[in-house]
Write a protein that binds this DNA or RNA. Structure first.
Lengths: 212, 212
DNA sequence: TGTACATCAGTGAACGCGCGTTCACTGATGTAC
DNA sequence: TGTACATCAGTGAACGCGCGTTCACTGATGTAC
């Protein structure tokens, strides 16, 4: 017979003065967690984020202008992590083909290891992202831009043949095809993961080295 | 100063006795239209469907058990149309490679011509489909099943080399990769559509004919 | 040919819910004097 | 060292909204006699 409300899981202790930014980080973490679990920005509510953090809903507005601002910052964090992880996988690699092979494997591995992140970044409706985000710039400044530069240099030096943009988009589509299909249609009897991953990467590179 | 409610666009005239099924078809059409426009089952409301058709919300329940039942039947219609269109594109083709090339082109063409249908069928969360639907069976009984049979026969007769399932999934992932990426990330400077489509199909077939 | 009646194809009002967001406020904490 | 005060980090209550679904009902229509 206590008056405590069981729906309010645990109240977060008030931050010390000057430590307001801590709540911002907690909100971002909780929102990302919910976005991953729900898979859709519409299904993430300000109220649920607040409860997960242990504060009341209006507290969210101390750190984010509105819901779309919050979702945007979550997505931005995810882009940063994606680019960071992929770039780390090819650190120090110079040979273009080795670079492409490594990044192809890393791309697929990342997507399959983080299916919900991947879904949000590469399989969701464009409208889920706030309108002011320039997606082209985000992609060109990220790992895809690196890949395009690597392929372009390789073509200029004669290591690869063909149109650099066509080759790069094509490799991207190949690895994306595998990742996104395995994420979207997992119910189907896929061949062993390693076999299909290796096959996909090898085929993507084959198309870059052979004229077809 | 009339009492007519402007929010109720146009009231559908009551069907004649025995013609109740007409409303069912109208509801399905309106729901599909809304699903296409919103791109997400959660964003389609019973009330919006009812208003589009020109009836009151409870009328929907005369023909569908609940919202998920309605969405399921819309998706089922879409699967049927997809399979029908693709099968029509390879009617009468016997040669496996010609069959694969045609179906590959038809697949990409269909996806790019019906991006929102494609998104719903192949890019959405599994949970958006009612739980009782066996997606594996839907896919195996459809065009993918046909493709698997064609490839299997071709391998048995020595026209293709490799594991049939691996080859078929691989071709699917290749064409799906292009379609889904162009749908999900249209903001990026894609090469000319025909070039990238041809390249993708040729590469997918190359991987089936060359051992890699 | 006329009429009572069962049935069909819906309607109108309401339910309880969760949502984003706003607004006036509170109470702890650091700081100036 | 003590105290008034500004500021910071939130809270509590409420707003209006759209949602899925239910329930009792209505009125036109075809049919049996």
């Amino acid at each position: 017979m206590t008056t405590s409300d069981p729906s309010l899981a645990k109240r977060r202790p008030r931050a010390r003065r000057g430590q307001g930014e801590l709540l911002r980080q907690d909100i971002l973490r909780a929102a990302e967690d919910l976005l991953i679990r729900k898979g859709d920005a519409d299904a993430v509510s300000i109220r649920a984020v607040a409860e997960a953090v242990g504060v009341t809903p209006p507290s969210i507005y101390l750190h984010f202008a509105d819901k779309s601002d919050l979702i945007f910052h979550v997505c931005q964090q995810q882009w940063e992590r994606f680019d960071h992880d992929l770039r780390a996988s090819v650190a120090g690699i110079d040979d273009p083909l080795a670079w492409l092979e490594r990044i192809g494997h890393a791309y697929i591995r990342w997507g399959l290891a983080n299916p919900e992140h991947y879904r949000i970044l590469f399989m969701s409706k464009p409208t889920q992202v706030p309108a002011h985000v320039d997606k082209e710039q985000v992609i060109m400044a990220g790992t895809f831009g690196d890949a395009l530069a690597v392929v372009t240099r390789a073509v200029e030096r004669g290591h690869l043949r063909g149109d650099p943009a066509l080759l790069t988009f094509s490799v991207w589509a190949a690895v994306h095809g595998l990742v996104s299909l395995m994420i979207a249609i997992p119910e189907v009897p896929w061949p062993p993961r390693d076999a299909v991953v290796d096959f996909t990467v090898r085929r993507a590179l084959l198309s870059a080295t052979h004229s077809v």
